[in-house]
Write a protein that binds this DNA or RNA. Sequence first.
DNA 1: GTGAAAGCGCTAACAG
DNA 2: CTGTTAGCGCTTTCAC
Lengths: 348, 348
Amino acid sequence: MTSRRRGAAPVTLKDVAADAGVSVATASQALAGRGRMTDVTRQRVRLSAERLGYRANALARGLRTGRTQALGVHHQSAAASLATAYFRDFLAGAIEAAHRHDHDLVVLSSDTTRPRTSAPRVDGVVVVDPIADDLRARELMEMPVPVVAGEHVPAHMPPCAVVAADHATAVRTVLDAAAAAGARRPLLAAPDENSGWGNLLREVVVAWCAERGTTPVLVSTQFATRSVDTERARLTPVLVAHPEVDLVVGASPFAALGALQVLRALGRTPGGDVLVAACADGQGLREEDPPVTAVELPAHALGAACVERLVSMLDTEGGADAALGTVQTVPAPVHLRASTSGAVGVLR
Amino acid sequence: MTSRRRGAAPVTLKDVAADAGVSVATASQALAGRGRMTDVTRQRVRLSAERLGYRANALARGLRTGRTQALGVHHQSAAASLATAYFRDFLAGAIEAAHRHDHDLVVLSSDTTRPRTSAPRVDGVVVVDPIADDLRARELMEMPVPVVAGEHVPAHMPPCAVVAADHATAVRTVLDAAAAAGARRPLLAAPDENSGWGNLLREVVVAWCAERGTTPVLVSTQFATRSVDTERARLTPVLVAHPEVDLVVGASPFAALGALQVLRALGRTPGGDVLVAACADGQGLREEDPPVTAVELPAHALGAACVERLVSMLDTEGGADAALGTVQTVPAPVHLRASTSGAVGVLR
DNA sequence: GTGAAAGCGCTAACAG
DNA sequence: CTGTTAGCGCTTTCAC
């Protein structure tokens, strides 16, 4: 039996070797299936190992081999973020993928008050939603460890491999749908330049407008803001000053919901004389009247894709360097709803 | 600046020592704030470390000190379980607590098809919902590492410290409420003996009945079962055979919902001539007609409490051994709803 | 005050 | 075929 008392000294390779009457080196090779030796010896070692309940010390192995079979995930305030469906689903996807490759998944301490005293014992890191002023994220991205960013990296952060939702396509779909329903002057409320996502949304909307000979009204929000009230306060003066706006695109559900409130207060009719959409779907949006058109962020798929990418970088010689700055994208379905007036349904 | 190329060799203590013109030993002590040396030397070392962007190698440190500053969580099929509010909230609580103590939280690979090849590099492990036939859980509990079980440990598993919701008090509250509304013959549908939770529920209900000179009807389910249909199929013959049952207590929401369906099909009136309750709250229960009385499992608090307990065991000499088999309990509020007929409201 | 040396448990190169 | 040796990066004891 392998059952042993808690607190008993762990069984080391030395113990196994002694028990089997071979040297540690031979024992190591026997268990790893490497090296050349008689099958008898190998079996003897294996038996000893099993009988003693031997488990290799991952620390020692990692120190020697440089691989730990563990991957890290970082998200600013990971614990609080678990309350959001996005991070939760992302994490579930990441865990599934990591376990599929027999790696443990480490949720890295996101205490931002102090830097890490030691480098995390992981082979690579996924940084979810890298935000320029997140110190821990920056710290991780500067470490000599392969990093995959889940979502675009803002300027002034070290480059790394990126896996992101295909926001460009999705947002264009939304804009086209709104244009088909008559919209001409969009307003975009998106996170400021600390967010790569916000930057991308701005780029896309500006480009789309330019193609039509117009320019969007732009409002900056904070990535971490999770309140309809804040967004409403921010949008009110802008919408008052720009009565010509006939399409409000909010990055977050909160921005879209805030816009809805402001527009109604201004006597306008969402889904009628003004259209509204969000670049990230959320429960509240479906339940509004009118339901709000939104991009479905494929959180689960993104989490899995980030880990898959990381693993393949790890498995490829020089893979991490080759991946620097390259972007892999995951489709983001668009849910067209009544708030953009025209057609209704899902576009994948 | 500390920014360095990806793939560049990590800065080791040796580099720092060389840069500061001292030995590795001195460098180590300087950074740890231990040892006796002039403040000048210490500062010089610290400066070098910072300038080079030194981060201690957690593997090497762990190998030497036996502490890794990381804790593990195990749950059978962790990834799939993230879909449940329970595990998600539990994990959030655990992560918060772990980060509070500056530990990383490792979601251990729950691939049950093969045993771990190496022991996880963690100082302690939380096993959520230990199930007797979960091989990985058993494996972890047999390792020479402190373990805290989140929920009661079934028979035939190694003993360990336990943190559990106070099901006994909660279920008695439910039973008393039902009795006050006239219920006399309870049926309990709970997971089989592989689940410590199921065992406890049975004990409590049997004891409660014994105090009233009766015995409950007992139905066994599987812990992993997450479907109303399965539960309905299981309950149908039993409820047909026992028309005298006037209170159905389901361990999971699924069992309670299944019971509701069966009872209605049999022409009975939940909340009227038969009462229904669940030992774990879930979204579906609140939305039923009548809404179903249920115990709120304090998942977040449990997750946090498990980690806190683990940390305190780690900090106490011999704390792990002392904790073996002891149970710490977390209050579980009871939501009395119309399905148990009488009073309605929350009891904490 | 500071450095040299040993060793945590493991694996990889090279002897025998 | 198997054992010996060296060393991953760090901490700790003990000399100097």
